[in-house]
Computed example of a mutant assay.
Amino acid sequence: MSLVVEIQNPEAFHSIPADDLIEQWARAAWLDENEASVVIRIVGTEEGLELNQSFRHKDYPTNVLSFPYEPSEFELEFLEAEELGHLGDLVLCLPVVEREAAEQNKPVQHHWAHLIVHGLLHLQGFDHEDSEVEADIMEAREIAILNQLGMPNPYESNE
């Protein structure tokens, strides 16, 4: 159960969690036994807005975006599934993550962990948009993973 995590911080933000914590949270959400990789990119408001507009047609930056890797025809024809191990990319918008943590009265590290777990589950095919049953399954998985990391249920109010 190995997940290679590449962390990108193109704006050199200083308030992001330590690389080892980001890697720990991502690996906790990796549910497969095969080796895989993921890119986690931390961006500012401008890039977050641009990506959310381009890919979701929403006119605001969001906390986390998941971009599953889609192999090319060549890769599908010539490589085994185990060799395709890249899950995709997660993009987290630092100002949104920090603002939401403050608004929700929760430790910012807990919110980072929740969003990384949430995004990794999306990359593995979990979804919460299409049905309440799928949303409940995904939420339960998130709560269990965060509990294993010693963090509280992110869906319970801290007020």
Rank of each mutant, 00 (worst) to 15 (best):
E23N: 09
D32A: 14
E159N: 13
R41M: 05
I42K: 00
G48K: 02
A101E: 05
G125N: 00
E132I: 14
D127W: 00
E70N: 06
L94Q: 14
G150E: 07
A140R: 10
S72Y: 04
N63R: 08
E50F: 05
S131N: 02
D32Q: 13
E70L: 01
D59I: 00
L79Y: 13
V96D: 00
D127A: 08
G88E: 00
V38I: 07
V39Q: 09
E134S: 15
V64K: 09
D130K: 12
E11I: 06
E159M: 11
Y69T: 02
H128M: 06
V39A: 07
I137W: 07
E70P: 03
A28Y: 05
R56T: 06
E159C: 08
L51Q: 11
Q104L: 15
I40E: 00
V5N: 01
F67P: 04
R56D: 10
E80I: 02
D136R: 14
S157Y: 04
E77F: 10
M1E: 10
L90H: 07
L149I: 04
G125I: 05
W30L: 01
V4Q: 15
N34G: 12
D130S: 12
E73N: 08
E82M: 09
I137T: 13
L31W: 09
H110P: 04
G48F: 03
Q124A: 04
G125Y: 05
D32R: 15
D59Q: 09
P152L: 08
V96C: 04
A81F: 10
V38H: 05
H122R: 05
H111K: 11
L21C: 06
N105V: 09
V5F: 06
E75V: 14
R56Q: 11
N158P: 03
Q148S: 14
P17S: 07
Y60D: 11
Y155L: 01
P107S: 05
E142L: 06
L21F: 09
S2A: 15
V91C: 07
E142S: 06
E11H: 11
E77S: 14
V4T: 15
A135S: 08
E6V: 10
Q104K: 14
H111D: 11
L92T: 03
V91R: 03
S157P: 02
L92R: 10
V39E: 11
I22A: 04
Y69S: 08
L149R: 02
L92F: 06
V43W: 00
S131T: 15
R56P: 01
H110E: 10
Q104R: 15
F55Y: 13
T45W: 12
R41G: 03
E156W: 07
H118V: 09
S66P: 06
P10A: 07
G44E: 01
V91I: 10
